[in-house]
Each structure stands twice: as C-alpha cells, then as structure tokens.
Design a protein around this nucleic acid. Structure first.
Lengths: 217, 217
DNA sequence: CCATATCTAAGGGGAAGTCCCTATTCACAT
DNA sequence: ATGTGAATAGGGACTTCCCCTTAGATATGG
C-alpha cells in the first residue's frame, strides 16, 4: 500500500521537525515537504501534491484559515487536517467552516495525529477529544445543560406542525393554505406554542428549532 | 490509578460478551455490569454507579435515546458513550441531543472504543471518524459544497455589523440606539445586505448567520 | 354527564418589518 | 472634477408579526 504523502505547514521550525520525525515513525506516512507559512504552503501543495496537509492555524504572512480556503478552492481533492494550540469555539469552528477535514489540538497525544491523518486520508474526519467536546456541546440543547425540562413536550401535534412550517420559512398565509385553515387559526396556534416555549419572536423560534434539531442548516 | 467502571447496555448478548472481553484486555477499564435494554440499563446505573455507560441506540423495551435522556436526568455525573450501527445524521444527532458524551460506530476499530471511553471519562468527547465527518460537514457552508462563491464578502463593514446585531435578536430601534443612527438608516443597511445575500426574511437571515458561524446556538 | 384540552375562527390594535422612492455628505479613485 | 460607493436619513404604503379577547365544535377521560 502506498504511503500517505503529508505536507507540514507551521511557522515554528521546531514543531515541523518534531512532527516530521514523529510521523516518519509511522510506517504508512511519508512527510514529503514542509512550509513555514500559508503562502508557502499553498505553493508547495501545487508542486508536491500531498494527500494530506497538516496545517497550523496561527501563522504570519498568510494565516491558516486563509490558506485552507485557498487550498480548498484550488485543490479540492487534498485533505486538510488543522492543527491548533487553542481548543475553543472561536478558533475551531471557523477552521472547519473554511474547509478543514479534521482538527487536532497540539495538546493531543501523538497517536491522535497519525489517527487524524489516516482518517482524513480515507475521506473521513477526525476531531480530537477536546475538540469533539465543543461540537457535541454545541449540538446539545442548552436546556439540558441548564437542567430544566424542555417545554417542547407540552406542545400539541398541531403546534409542532406549525412550528416546523414557521421555522422552515413559510409565512402565516402560506401555512394557512397548506393546512387548509384560516391565517387566524395559524396565528392562534403560533401564539400558543410561543407562550409554551417562552419565546417572543420568530427569530428566537428559529434558533430554538435549530437547537432542537427540528430543522437543520 | 483507579480503573474506569463501565456498564454495557446492548440487547445482543453476543455484542455484550465480545465488548466486555475486549474492554477487559485494556488494563485501565473494568466492566462492572451489563444490561439488555434501556430500562434495565437505567436501573443498573443506579445500583452500580458506573463511570461510563456504553449504550447501544437501537434496542427494544426502552430505546437507547430514551435511556440516555433518563440517565442524564437522574445521574448527571455519569458519562455516556453511544454505540450504533448507523453512521447517519438521523441517528447520530438525536443521540447527541439526548445527552450522549460521545459516539462510536460499531464498524469502528476496537481501539476507538477504549479511546472513546477514556475521553468521555475525563470529561472530553469522542466521535469516531465516520461520525466526526457528519459534524464537520454540517458545519461547513453549503456554498462550499455547491462551489459558488459566498456573497458575504461583498458586505460592507457596517452591513456586517448590522447583520450580527439583527441575528442576535436586536430590534431595528435598538440597533439604531446602539449605533447612534436613526432606525431608517439601519433599515437601509439591512435592506442592502439582504439584497446582496439574496435573502428575503429575518428567518433566513438567522439560518444564514448560523451557517456562517456569525452566531451560535 | 361534565370537565378539560384541542382545534378551529374572528376582531382589533400596536409594533415591526418590507419595499418603493429621494437626497446629502464624504472619501476614494479615475 | 467627476463618478462611484458607502453611510446617513427620511416619506409613504403595504404586509407581517405579536398580543389580547372571545367562542363554537369535537374529543378524551373521569
């Protein structure tokens, strides 16, 4: 089996050398190049055509996020594993949104690095545990974290039906047509369900629905 | 160091035995009990007080999701690692929403099972690669998948500022006060930014903002 | 049979949003 | 200097949203 070709992009030479040595110990991985910033990384992707790019986020000249976006655009087949010091939402989510296939924290064990490289190489993703936690928590209802029971259970079937249509973007009049009732009836149900959920605007309703998984982005 | 106490909940005896044997091979994990369905699992959690519950999702009597919710409610300190056959959104997201700390596919290597147990035990999360992929893809902009460029870049600074405030729930009048301009000006910017984004309602705006990571749930 | 809950519907009203316009000021680039 | 884009502001018309009250029909359970 061909070895996985990896390009390391990080502004610290020490990190590049360390990671490179580390990865060489894994039989199925081959470090084919290194770059010290996003700009250089982007160029080397074109020249060396790696399978996986190991990309540090915080870098001068061209930041990791910008580099990820450009690599995604120019070489859509290349997998990108982001590497970062910071395990918080503000750093991780933008990285994923810019097109990274996986995310590994620098505090992770070295085994996670190889696991991550193998995972993204095969088209899967990898999130190291501290980062997986961010995703998982973001998907959980806040209400569960708060401990109080969810008033969603109090809704009647009709109310759930209307909630769904509302957050999908249908206007009151359209919903009325779909359900073959008058707009006034739709409003009545909507008022009722909003009262039950303690929500006072369409906007909060959308956020609630996304949190509950009633609709997805 | 004390070993991690694990309770296995799965309706297939074969799976329970196999997993139990597998976990026993790891020195730091101790299987302290087994249950064949959610109801039995819930009872045993109370009796045995495990550190981690390994919970199958598809079960008769009491499904895994319901069991997870109840364990979360009654024993908030217990970590739950969900185990499933199916690696799709429809199965995974509801499980996370019901309170699981991590998610491992049955198709995963056994090393992932132990990695997952250790991660959730220490308060982190674990998502096996095929499942991490679902999360990652859900967080990426649809526009990247579609390939078309994002009109967000076209927005002026003022428009971005107002977009943020709008989706955070501020009314036009409040935004006007915050920025020390008239409501009419805020409306003008809003109209302009909505036109650029091709959006025609507050509701879509919120969805867009969530997708873009401008706000979080 | 009665109480309760749900679904239906309507009237009225205030607040907010949406969609037309026009217009001034300022900065920046051609 | 002239144009372009951005930020500012307003008028007017129309729609939608949110809240309040009331009330008949139907079903469910005690």
């Amino acid at each position: 089996m061909r070895r996985i070709k990896v390009l390391i992009v990080d502004d610290h030479a020490i990190v590049r050398d360390g990671v490179s040595t580390l990865l060489s110990l894994a039989g199925d991985i081959e470090v084919i190049g290194e770059a010290a910033n996003g700009k250089e990384g982007l160029e080397k992707v074109g020249k060396l055509l790696p399978d996986v790019v190991l990309m540090d986020i915080a870098m001068p000249i061209m930041g990791g996020l910008e580099a990820i976006r450009r690599i995604r655009k120019a070489f859509s087949g290349v997998k990108i594993l982001a590497l970062t010091q910071y395990d918080d939402k503000e750093h991780v989510f933008p990285a994923i949104q810019s097109g990274a296939n996986g995310f590994v924290s620098k505090t992770s064990a070295s085994s996670e690095l190889t696991a991550g490289i193998r995972a993204v190489f095969t088209g899967e993703s990898y999130l190291s545990p501290s980062i997986a936690k961010l995703f998982v928590e973001d998907y959980r209802q806040v209400s569960l974290a708060g401990g109080k029971s969810d008033p969603y259970e109090e809704l009647t079937d009709r109310e759930r039906e209307i909630l769904k249509l509302v957050v999908e973007g249908y206007k009151t009049r359209q919903i009325a047509e779909i359900l073959s009732v008058t707009p006034k009836t739709v409003e009545a149900h909507k008022t009722s369900l909003m009262k039950k959920l303690g929500i006072h605007s369409n906007l909060e309703l959308v956020k609630y629905a996304l949190r509950r998984g009633i609709i997805s982005m």
